[in-house]
Design a protein around this nucleic acid. Sequence first.
DNA 1: GATGGTATGATTGTATACAATTATACGAAA
DNA 2: TTTCGTATAATTGTATACAATCATACCATC
Lengths: 236, 236
Amino acid sequence: MNSSNDLKQEVTDKYSLRGRVFNRIREDILNGKYKDHEELREVAIGEELGVSRTPVREAFRQLELEGLIQIIPNKGAYVTGIKVKDIKDIYMIRSKLEGLCARWACEHITEEQLEEMEENIFLAEFHASKGHMEQIAELDNRFHNILYESCNSKMLEHLLKDYHQYVWRIRKQSLVTKRGNASNGEHRAIMEAIKEKNPDKAEQLANQHMINAYNNMLSNGFFDDYDDEHQDENQE
Amino acid sequence: MNSSNDLKQEVTDKYSLRGRVFNRIREDILNGKYKDHEELREVAIGEELGVSRTPVREAFRQLELEGLIQIIPNKGAYVTGIKVKDIKDIYMIRSKLEGLCARWACEHITEEQLEEMEENIFLAEFHASKGHMEQIAELDNRFHNILYESCNSKMLEHLLKDYHQYVWRIRKQSLVTKRGNASNGEHRAIMEAIKEKNPDKAEQLANQHMINAYNNMLSNGFFDDYDDEHQDENQE
DNA sequence: GATGGTATGATTGTATACAATTATACGAAA
DNA sequence: TTTCGTATAATTGTATACAATCATACCATC
């Protein structure tokens, strides 16, 4: 039930103080500047960003709903660090939901979306052969967003985009994974299944695609000392 | 990625002005007092509830993340009505996620949780035989919450509780559905599958349980003129 | 020395004041 | 009559002031 992915919202985030504060704090939690259980004080952050308490407070309320901080009334705001377990859970949840999304896409995808997917995959193959990691990552992003938009469900699209951005923010600080070829092949398979209107197959493939992506992160040692870097001493 | 389900949060909602404003507006959107695309003005709502703009604004920010209103910078806050399609989508999404939840519960449920489930089902059978609709609804709620808590995933628990509350708020204004017996039988089946640690079966049953619940709403004519009541003239 | 209570400071909650932006109304020019 | 521009009003964005609550330190008492 979140938001923050339409154009208007991006404009807000860019030009309003609240939006800037919100994004800044979110980044700082995700990249580990603010550690788990750390207290965030309104004045301190306000001074750091050169704004008053008002926009900071509004940003706090949003961050709380995003689950990134916990606000205890009359006491303070405390960082809720993201744990390795959370990332795993998100991938498993996404696995189910991307499956559902691919299923619905079989019925509702438009010709234009199918064409953009095809182009996307074609381009990704090209950049993979050249080793252009930056572009591959961008195209991967875009592929999933097309898929989300093609399912004809604002609810599901919303949810998946949120999760997608969420893990993206975490992943992007690490090296981009070297899975371009395999991943793109899976994209092609999903697209083919959607094109031939085979919902069972599309769902199953999208399901597995997400699980593979997760396993890839695992075997690349992404998590090896993630918690150490993002949690402070008193673990739970 | 939402929140608003732990005890602390409830305390906030009850005693802080912001929390009261937030709940009030949410109710008013869900029960149709504020129609689709209606503009919400900060001062007007503030005066109506006897508070200043500050808590109203903070509530607005939260409502935006919940997807209930859309805020256009420097312009205003506009209600985003819930459409029949959204409710259907939520049930289908929940179907997948409750399945995943039941699967994980097989591994992680505690003895106490299993016992509470058993007691819950027992009580529900009793009240069903007596026709105590109020209690049946309450027990149904509780059953699902136990299930959510038993999956050992804060992420999934969070998400499912949000959706659960969301549809609950919509459903409760209508007559309580008369599905007590069948629903409770399905609860029992899910519990048995979890108890015997059969994740495939548990997932499949929880899946189907949600689809049945949705079909029941359909055949009870719940949606017949829902949009008419909750959307204003210019539909999309 | 340990314990408890009070005073002080720090922090959040709310209200209000001011600035910036947007909508509306009115009139002049074509 | 229509259209454009300007002035005015309304509304949101931000900053600040004040109130309420919570944390800390210090001192009195046992």
